[in-house]
Design a protein around this nucleic acid. Structure first.
Lengths: 352, 352
DNA sequence: TGCTAGGATGTGGGCGTTCACATTTCGCCT
DNA sequence: AGGCGAAATGTGAACGCCCACATCCTAGCA
């Protein structure tokens, strides 16, 4: 509609099956067979057709193919805020895993964690005959019940979602990871373990928080103080300030991610506390820089690559066998001990 | 699904224009008009059709639409190694900018910087009737000349690419940014400014390197020692070690990105050098954590959001007006001064 | 030599849309 | 009241491909 005169097609049209067929002196169906590697094509014919394809630069039109096959060899992904480390890693690793399986990726991120946004995103994606969807729902409020009706019968797996027995999902066990971290601190003799958590409407933040609580309870230790923050270093800095302002002693601090831990360490130092001598600090994620923080950060590693692979694996089985009973694939986190934690031998709690 | 008698096919077929048309008692064309917000549809008809659309859960089939319009409302993006901060940021910010313009994103990353990989990726994308392409080519070897023929007549803009007057491109001026950093150091009185660069087959690394050289030359100062590394903190650590092993004095260090700067700082400290008293360090990128490094890192900020917006803006004008003459849109970097740099007053060069 | 099985190839139809054009409907002016 | 033009609606034909089926050919066997 923009340009009426452009219509008569000065634009070199792309070669089609028919073009190739005519040029090679066969029917378009034969060309189609060659393209799709159908067995019953004579070797000579195939060769000739391939030559013409090459000469004409023919590429099958995916839209046309998709229209009739109802498949697109593409999977869609919807995610919140890829600016955070976790979601960002998920996107990257998913893309890699998908590509290795021959799928393409169409990516949509959500402006905010609203259902309307989710509907927009999923509508957008399902309109494209996508073979499957990967949905990252790290924030409370959008659960399986809300997402499922939007997807129609497009198979989808959820990542980083609230457990739901009806959902196909893949998760990294956050509570277990947090337990590892907290038990490590307890094992070092710490009896006052404070926490800076992520925003508690994020599932990851909540589960890490609960893992921290559970580990303390398991050791018969009362929960320390906990302040929620926003995943950022600046937030971690502020949260540590709040913790210190409470003037309650803690010799160890479990922080919901590495960035906040970095900020917290700075705040603690600003208050003349030494890490780890005065306060042991554990982070979460094991970002590549964590080993070079000052001090090198003890943290919990998540294997995002495995997460990506598992998700793609699950989704492809689901595409091939839609009746696969829903289950949850769980991956486990791993503790990485570095120099930001030490034994509480000379217990000298902060602001004690 | 709800109505088993509706169709012999077990799979609930998605509602089509025709279904809606029949159900609403109009022709499919009228429904199409409603969907596409064509003006000449009676208000009553429009309302009725919309109701049916809602009731049937009709969604236009993008593949079919794309087949006839030769547009997909989707743009494709090909990128290397999104695991690095820069490329990763580009993807995220591009997606955001695209979404605000109503485009979807199909993303492909390359296994390696080979032309074959690039061909695979672009073929994959152009087969999908994409409206345009954004191609990130941060590494030498794949330039406009190599990419252009692969794209056919799909408009594309290049990001992070070698300047080429034939190319539509958007870049952040790396040399300028490096100049800012180096001049800052010179301004502080430093006369021996070493460098840890990124891999020099990356354009960004090379241009930063050249910016560093140019600034020194401009001030009549001989170039300091330079070691190339790999963008990682571990690499920065090792590179700083190499630099120290040369036993040549330097009071300032320009590092190609923040992660390497972090590693370098650790290495310098391991050698009992104080930052910034003994060595001033400048990074590049201004990652969100840089302000909380120890010491807070002086660095050069790149506005990836603006880069994303500019790229999308350029690409959309290109889509609407394919004959737009190629040009390069240049964005400028910005110096962020923090505590990792100080004046060279009490010049006490490293290993002097 | 004739018949048949199966490999190789061609034909018709339709996937769900949009486009260009044809047709109907209606309000309004003289 | 007649007629005219614009608004509203409908029709036929693609878009490029895959599917099911029909047809042709070749070789192998009795």
């Amino acid at each position: 509609m923009p340009n009426p005169t452009a219509r008569p097609s000065p634009k070199a049209r792309r070669a089609t099956l028919d073009d190739v067929a005519q040029c090679a002196g066969v029917s378009y169906q034969t060309v189609s067979r060659v393209v799709n590697e159908h067995p019953s094509v004579a070797a000579a014919t195939r060769r000739r057709v391939l030559e013409v394809i090459d000469k004409l630069g023919y590429r099958p039109n995916r839209a046309a193919r998709s229209l009739v096959t109802r498949r697109s060899n593409t999977i869609g992904m919807v995610s919140f805020s890829t600016k955070y480390y976790g979601p960002g890693q998920m996107v990257v690793n998913l893309e890699t895993a998908l590509r290795q399986r021959g799928f393409s990726l169409t990516l949509t991120t959500l402006d905010g964690p609203s259902l309307a946004e989710m509907r927009r995103a999923i509508d957008e994606l399902t309109a494209r005959n996508l073979d499957g969807l990967v949905i990252i729902t790290p924030v409370a409020g959008i659960d399986f019940g809300a997402v499922a009706p939007l997807c129609g019968d497009t198979p989808f797996v959820m990542i980083d979602a609230l457990p739901d027995e009806r959902a196909h999902s893949v998760v990294i066990d956050q509570a277990q990871g947090a337990g590892l971290a907290t038990e490590h601190l307890i094992g070092l003799g710490h009896r006052t373990v404070a926490e800076i958590s992520g925003p508690l409407d994020w599932h990851d933040a909540r589960f890490r928080h609960e893992g921290w609580l559970a580990a303390l309870r398991g050791a018969g230790i009362g929960p320390g103080r906990s302040v929620a923050s926003d995943w950022t270093a600046a937030g971690g800095y502020a949260a540590a300030g709040e913790l210190l302002a409470l003037r309650e002693a803690f010799s160890a601090l479990f922080v919901g991610n590495d960035q906040m831990a970095l900020g917290a360490i700075r705040a603690l130092r600003d208050a003349d506390l030494r890490i780890p001598e005065d306060v042991s600090v554990v982070g979460f994620d094991d970002v590549p820089e964590a080993a070079f923080y000052d001090p090198p950060l003890t943290t919990v590693r998540q294997d995002f690559q495995a997460l990506g692979r598992q998700s793609v694996d699950y989704l492809t089985t689901l595409i091939d066998a839609p009746d696969t009973p829903p289950h949850q694939r769980v991956l486990y986190a791993q503790l990485v001990v570095r120099a930001s934690t030490t034994s509480a031998a000379a217990e000298r709690p902060a602001r004690g």
